[in-house]
Design a protein around this nucleic acid. Sequence first.
DNA 1: AAGTGGTCTAGACCACACC
DNA 2: GTGTGGTCTAGACCACTTC
Lengths: 247, 247
Amino acid sequence: MPLRSSSGPVYRRIADDLRERIGRGEWASGAKLPSETALGEQYGAHRLTVRRAIEDLTRLGLLHVRHGAGTFVAPPALRYEISVDDPARHATAEGVERTYTSLGIEAAEELLRITAEDDTEARRHLELRRAGMLRIETLLYVGGEPCVVSSTYVENRRFPGLADRWDGQRSVYDVLRENYGAGLVYAWRSFGATAADADDAAAMAIPPGSPILLREGLSLDLDGRPTAYVRRRCRGDRMKFVLRYRD
Amino acid sequence: MPLRSSSGPVYRRIADDLRERIGRGEWASGAKLPSETALGEQYGAHRLTVRRAIEDLTRLGLLHVRHGAGTFVAPPALRYEISVDDPARHATAEGVERTYTSLGIEAAEELLRITAEDDTEARRHLELRRAGMLRIETLLYVGGEPCVVSSTYVENRRFPGLADRWDGQRSVYDVLRENYGAGLVYAWRSFGATAADADDAAAMAIPPGSPILLREGLSLDLDGRPTAYVRRRCRGDRMKFVLRYRD
DNA sequence: AAGTGGTCTAGACCACACC
DNA sequence: GTGTGGTCTAGACCACTTC
């Protein structure tokens, strides 16, 4: 099989060709591609060269690879749209889980771990003069898939015994509110993009390096004191935040 | 040199070790690492295995590779913070360039091309019953670096001769306003994450697969008719959008 | 010209999924 | 067990930067 695009490295020409063949419908959504070895024979290229093309298309979200099973055409990315438009509605910081379920999206939050771990960014935002933070890590399943890893940082001495009072069933915000009487409102949220590190990748069952939507935020207590800094890492192919100005 | 972390693939252990050595200050920010071959000898691994580790760290933004010159420790990512908090201030859709310069950030927009190219997403948002769109592609330099690739879609027949009236010096929105009297306001904007494809990578001088912050938006004319759909692809290591609720 | 990263091939072995 | 992807080595040649 001759490769059409005449210039550039072989792996790119293979990627372009695979892309076109998928676009033409040669393999339907969810269908299994030939093995890497077989594709290598088709293109007259080594398996590793084909592999490089497949890796690139995987990061772009066009393919999905399952170890031992095969390489598949990824279904069109279904992105959950989360509205962040109405400051009033979001003045009260609520848990991620509720953010989704209130939109009619099936979601469940799981507590991964609570550790005493300092983070320079968190410390800066919480305006702490000395160390001593708790990091609460949770994993959010959306539509049955692990999609969001959250790290919430709070000052340790403001929430003594927090780890023990956790039943794993309530959101971070609810626990802070109910056990410590801390009312929380958002100060700001931010949106960025980064790559999945090994931990993110393992937690969300995606290849390392996959696009991640980085969602940070700071919550204040009712006295206006910085209280909780959260850093969420969301699967880029599943999440989307929308800011509506008018209909 | 023995590798510390005892489990997992070699390339990950090398990546972890390099990360730690950078953290310890063995190489300062901007400093040049040993060549891939030399690192391979240090770790007793093949050059390609080292290379895999370097690729991962590059996507994470810790390293920066220059073909023919070497591998360098990337300076801490400087992210430009763009406020999207005040709907009133942004009611009038303005060009990207002005968004940045009004924040005191050096920015310059360059017209790449105008083509007649249909896009199903754009067509849906613009609510067009039939094909016939213009795609205006621009590249925004921020702080001297190419950081944002924008595609703006408008209905062709609403803006006849648009390509000819372009002097390349004004923003898309200004051209639409001044030449066609189209007042524009934002309807919504959205934030997502994806990977750089080959085109994005070439335009912004980043490796393919790098994290990209995807910023879409729809503008309406004063009659409330969908008029311009824009899709911006921003370097994930340079951009950050902030939504402020209160100080 | 020398050094560096970019690409490609060849072949091997391992880990996992499915039958 | 068989087939699939995941990792690793060996060695080659090319393209680019730097001198």
